[in-house]
Design a binder for these strands. Structure first.
Lengths: 190, 190
DNA sequence: CATCGCCCCATGTGATCACAAAGCGCATTG
DNA sequence: CAATGCGCTTTGTGATCACATGGGGCGATG
């Protein structure tokens, strides 16, 4: 999910087993889960690899993120109070620091934490799980994305999200979330 | 997905293995997949059961269906041609027959085939996979639903969907799909 | 008769083994 | 020197086994 594995990278059950010091059986089960969620691909012969997404699929996943996350944000809005907003601002500060350090994995992790923190307030576990499944599928690709945008951009849309939360502005929140989610992925498709 | 298993029904790995004449290993892997997709629950001790959904979760899943399937229908609309509409009408005929026979599983299966047939035209495999994941989670619950509505109702909203497809009426299509998806599940929540 | 507690059985987990297939490298040949 | 074919090695699959744990049924007790 955090882009620690490059797109197209191959994995082996025995290798995973060695890495985590277990036998093939638990490695197989974990891998089966990830394949079911689309986070890993399995060739007809059973070879395992991280998926290299086509532009069409990236567009689809971005559209799914927009659909689901806008809804989650909208449901979180009435429940958002000051403690939540403070927490989101703290995460934003972390993001800025991480960006300064050129830490791609840290960036992705902190960015997703921002979103997850907001969406947890929606009290919609099934929707959140769906969103996280999409994040998982995009993980390896995100890495490629955030190494491409080299400028140390502060989380602009995150500030818009916080402002909309403070103002109780639902249309503004929906727009800000949609923009934040779509923004980065657009440049990978184009 | 088709409601052949009642909500809350328990399953065992050895039982599944016997049923399909394989050992525990493939049964475990299949079950792991289904647990990952939310189609089965696993207690802390590892006991397997079909989930008994709370009203809140049903509402969530219905909202997800509405979000995703409206988008899929909308994407399918420009690609819909007469052969597709004919096929949808044929499925509708099947549904009417199945309803007359009080065949709940057949009803669910045919109903989902109607939706899948339409959504396949959207050329959006990731979205379709998401929708099917939701169907899977709702499967056992759907059965409870369609045994509850006892009247031999013809697929009303399906006809609206077909009409909107013929007319190229996108807002009408979105509304018809949302209504069809929400209609039944509403009565389970209330 | 109801309730509580205990024990046995059934259940999931992880390891290991045998096997088939696929991929890769190397040697051979044109 | 390049292309091709063969064989070894590595990979995933499925079965089986030993084990720990938890649940349900049965009996004892109030």
């Amino acid at each position: 999910m955090f882009g620690q594995i490059a797109p197209g990278e191959a994995l082996t059950l025995r290798g995973i087993g060695r890495e985590f010091d277990v036998s093939m059986t638990p490695a197989r089960e974990a891998v089966q889960r990830l394949v079911a969620e689309g986070a890993l691909t399995m060739s007809a012969s059973g070879r395992l690899a991280t998926p290299a997404l086509t532009p069409e699929r990236i567009e689809e996943l971005a559209a799914l993120r927009a659909l689901i996350e806008v809804e989650l944000a909208s449901r979180a809005l009435p429940r958002a109070h000051m403690a939540l907003i403070d927490r989101l601002q703290a995460i934003n500060t972390t993001i800025s620091e991480v960006v300064a350090n050129r830490d791609a994995v840290g960036y992705i992790r902190a960015n997703l934490e921002f979103h997850r923190t907001l969406y947890l307030r929606a009290q919609a576990p099934a929707m959140l799980a769906m969103a996280e499944t999409v994040w998982l599928q995009l993980g390896p690709t995100m890495r490629a994305l955030y190494t491409r945008l080299r400028r140390s951009e502060a989380p602009h849309y995150h500030r818009l999200i916080i402002a909309a939360l403070k103002a109780g502005d639902e249309p503004g929140l929906r727009l800000a979330v949609r923009s934040d989610v779509t923004q980065g992925l657009k440049m990978l498709v184009g």
